[in-house]
Amino acid sequence: MSKNKQQLIELACKGDKQALENLLVICQPDIKRFARRTSVQARKILMMRCKLHYGSYIEK
């Protein structure tokens, strides 16, 4: 992690609004990538649960 990012984290934790805004701008690509990956994984888990749940009704 860069020294600048670490400093922004420390300032944001202390309540510096501008540091938090800067940190969000810097980290936006990482945040978006995490959100997309998490969303895809969540959909896969939901589909698997639905298949398992409704599959038991179909087999009866």
Rank of each mutant, 00 (worst) to 15 (best):
G15Q: 06
D16E: 07
D16I: 01
K17P: 12
K17F: 15
K17Y: 14
K17L: 13
K17D: 13
Q18T: 01
Q18P: 02
Q18G: 08
Q18R: 06
Q18V: 06
Q18K: 07
A19R: 05
A19M: 10
A19E: 02
A19G: 10
L20D: 04
L20R: 12
E21T: 12
E21W: 14
N22T: 08
N22E: 00
L23Q: 02
L23H: 02
L24M: 08
L24Y: 12
V25H: 14
V25A: 12
V25Y: 12
C27T: 10
Q28G: 03
Q28H: 08
Q28Y: 07
Q28R: 06
P29A: 03
D30V: 00
D30G: 07
D30K: 03
I31F: 15
I31Y: 15
K32T: 05
K32M: 06
R33E: 15
R33T: 01
R33H: 11
F34V: 01
A35K: 14
A35S: 11
A35R: 07
A35D: 08
R37E: 06
T38Y: 12
T38K: 10
S39Q: 07
V40M: 04
V40K: 07
Q41S: 10
Q41Y: 02
Q41H: 05
A42K: 10
A42D: 05
R43W: 03
K44C: 04
